[in-house]
Design a protein around this nucleic acid. Structure first.
Lengths: 202, 202
DNA sequence: TATAATAATGACATTGATGTCGTTTTAATT
DNA sequence: AATTAAAACGACATCAATGTCATTATTATA
């Protein structure tokens, strides 16, 4: 006559699956991840997990959406309190100091991008996500222009995409190279120089 | 008392497997490729194919080695007949005009890079290969310096790696985006500008 | 033409992951 | 305490791919 548990409880469950999944995706990457892992990690049953997420793809997309929501909020406050160029530098340099696990998860994401190219669901999601990232960067740059910090010498959306490309490239390579073989720090410095000159930072 | 067939014949067979495999890797990507595909495409038997290549990984690595040998020769003549900067521009701009299938194969390569991060065999191969590419670019730049074409404002090997990173990034993105969504042409132009300025082209 | 070495075949055992579904358990309501 | 809606369980059928190996076919030599 009544639902067995509260919405809250279900949300809790969902979250605990997502949390466990994130850890496993980070550790093993996307392809190697199997549902069994999440079943063991949460202690739930096969059917239980499947009642929350239809499959691995659904699980991963939900995870990305969840993360996106979080970081979106954080960024808003960051921007309101700092110069745009300082914010950008902060984000970029964060990549240098990122936890190993952050890089590992970024790798899993790249892997997902690639492996999902034949899934129309995932592809649509990825295109939206790319668009979102690109738009976000554009709006960041435009805000900088409005505030008089930048006068770019290339179309804003090209700069934004160049930015994304560079970090996608770095993400892949960090998968199979140690950061000193890759010279990622130095590459990031070079990139930051180019970014500054494209934006015409004053 | 005699081997059944000539070395030539075996080499021929090997080559025909590689050729078929390349086409399939291009079409389907690395992960989706299964040995059955190559068996059907060549008309050989399962055991036959396996007697030439131990598994998918072995097949793909052999394919890359074969390709590398080919392009290495082509490049040598290119360099001897042109200015280094013109050669570099040619290579970069080739990316713009590349056949769709070339991009597709590049995507399969990126996929291989990522999926093979837990295979020590493949990882070692990839590290060697990255080193080779990086060294090749370095020697290209150094030749340019010797000829008085360049005076770079950053360490040569950082420039080389930056180059590789950019194209790796572009390869990934071209997997799930059309080139006009990606603005790959414009990104390449931006990149070429940065490359020119890093190299101090005269 | 016989034979010996080996290339080529394809059926098969094995593995591992997936998603489903009939059953059992649980807890909110009466 | 009894009822009942639905949450959770886990055994299972299914599928797809892998690599092996006993058998068969082939061809260069004797």
């Amino acid at each position: 006559m009544a639902p067995k548990v509260s919405e809250e409880h279900k949300e809790q469950r969902r979250l605990s699956i997502l949390t466990a999944a994130k850890e496993i995706f980070t550790e093993k990457g996307y392809e190697a991840f199997v549902m069994q892992d999440v079943i063991e990690a949460t202690g739930m049953s096969r059917g239980g997990v499947y009642s929350y997420f239809a499959n691995k793809e659904d699980l991963f997309i939900s995870l990305l959406e969840h993360k996106q929501q979080q970081s979106s909020n954080e960024l808003d406050t960051l921007i309101s309190q700092n110069k745009i160029w300082d914010t950008i530098k902060m984000i970029v340099l964060d990549f240098k100091n990122a936890e190993h696990s952050d890089n590992q998860f970024a790798a899993a994401q790249v892997e997902f991008n690639i492996l999902s190219r034949n899934s129309s669901n995932a592809k649509e999601f990825l295109q939206r996500r790319y668009q979102w990232a690109s738009d976000f960067l554009c709006s960041l740059i435009n805000e900088g222009i409005k505030r008089g910090e930048f006068s770019p010498n290339a179309p804003v959306h090209h700069i934004a995409r160049y930015y994304i490309t560079f970090f996608d490239g770095l993400s892949i390579e960090s998968i199979f190279l140690k950061s000193q073989e890759l010279n990622s720090d130095e590459q990031i410095d070079l990139f930051l120089g180019h970014l500054g000159s494209m934006l015409g930072v004053k």
